Simulated scan of single mutants.
Amino acid sequence: MSPLRLRPTAAAALSLAALGMLSACGRETAVGAGDRPASVAGAGDPSASLGGACGTHQAGAPSASQPPAAPPDSSRSSAQETNGVRMTGPGDRAGGCAGFQVTNHEDVTLTYTVTFGFRSASGGLRDTATRVLAGVKPGRTVSGTLGRGNTTASDWSGVDIVKVRSVPTAEAPAPGGPCPASGTRLYADDGDAAMGLRVVTLHLENCGSTPYHLAGYARISPLGLDHRVVPGVRILHGGSAVAQGTGADGPARPLTLAPGERAHAGLVWRNTVLAGTPVNAPYVRVWARQGARPVTVTPELDLGTTGKLAIGPWKRDR
């Protein structure tokens, strides 16, 4: 399978300053008439949809009376983008909402996960909030807002774009919601890290109506920010190829999951840095078995200079 043709965009930390005590803001609105809006969810709000208003100002609509705030200095401009995401200014000064836009510059429909950081008046990071925007079509822009309701901090004065991740919507993980057409859910957990050793677990559930057969190991491919395969990474079978005692070892036996049953497999790596250039690969494309539809997860691989990524065999959940 050829890699996705995705065009990387420049990454920069962006800010929106001069926001006071903030009240709750409205939800996101898709920009562009005639489009079916993308879906959006915040942390703890997986079913939220685009639409609504921020105070008296609808997100995404022009406002002559409430212009965007000027950037605090020449190095931070609200017109700049971080991987397709930019801050656009307060949605409404009375409501105290910070506006943002997500633009899909690529040629496939993408699901974005955007982490925003809330800054205090002194410049420190007070809190974070995450927004998931699913189904953003090529060439489309989705507009939204953030406000006090998105954070436990009461004294934040600005918003930074901390991290942007995007995966093809057709390959997005499905930890919940309706069962995918494949009849399986595949996703990764947040993992565990200790003394430079990383372990992230892939989870697979047969949510369909027929048995699902697995054979040994999943096939995996690490991808960079540009969604292209990262060269030079050795894919090894069994966690012991990297470290002992990770739980990602054992015989690779054929496995059949009845409807409702689950399995798991471990990704194991070290972030040791010696001579050479460290390798980072935020994404991993996963094929649960031969012929399966791929799913792209985001384990944030920091492989250091080891050049090794191990995967354990599928094991039935007990």
Score class of each variant (00 low, 15 high):
215 A>T: 08
215 A>M: 04
215 A>Y: 03
216 G>Q: 07
217 Y>V: 00
217 Y>M: 05
218 A>W: 02
218 A>T: 00
219 R>A: 14
221 S>F: 00
221 S>P: 01
222 P>H: 04
222 P>W: 02
223 L>V: 03
223 L>G: 03
224 G>M: 06
224 G>P: 03
224 G>E: 01
225 L>Y: 07
226 D>R: 04
227 H>R: 07
228 R>G: 14
228 R>W: 05
228 R>C: 03
229 V>N: 02
230 V>T: 09
231 P>E: 13
232 G>K: 13
232 G>A: 07
232 G>D: 11
232 G>T: 12
232 G>H: 12
233 V>M: 11
233 V>I: 15
234 R>L: 13
234 R>S: 15
235 I>C: 07
235 I>Y: 00
235 I>V: 15
236 L>F: 07
236 L>P: 02
237 H>F: 11
237 H>E: 07
238 G>D: 03
238 G>I: 09
238 G>Q: 05
239 G>V: 09
240 S>E: 08
240 S>G: 12
240 S>H: 05
241 A>I: 02
241 A>S: 13
241 A>N: 10
241 A>C: 04
242 V>T: 11
243 A>P: 09
244 Q>L: 15
244 Q>V: 11
244 Q>D: 10
246 T>V: 15
246 T>P: 12
247 G>W: 15
248 A>F: 07
248 A>L: 13
250 G>A: 13
250 G>M: 10
250 G>T: 10
252 A>Y: 00
253 R>K: 15
254 P>V: 06
254 P>H: 13
255 L>T: 03
256 T>N: 09
256 T>D: 08
256 T>E: 10
257 L>T: 02
257 L>M: 10
258 A>N: 06
260 G>K: 14
260 G>S: 07
261 E>I: 09
261 E>V: 10
262 R>E: 06
262 R>P: 03
262 R>F: 04
263 A>M: 06
263 A>C: 06
263 A>V: 05
264 H>E: 05
265 A>L: 05
267 L>Y: 01
267 L>R: 03
269 W>P: 04
270 R>C: 01
270 R>A: 05
272 T>S: 10
273 V>P: 01
274 L>A: 14
275 A>M: 09
275 A>P: 01
276 G>D: 05
277 T>Y: 05
277 T>G: 01
278 P>C: 06
278 P>Q: 04
278 P>F: 01
279 V>E: 05
279 V>N: 01
280 N>M: 07
281 A>N: 05
281 A>W: 06
281 A>V: 12
281 A>H: 07
281 A>M: 08
283 Y>A: 04
285 R>H: 11
285 R>Y: 12
286 V>S: 14
287 W>V: 00
287 W>C: 00
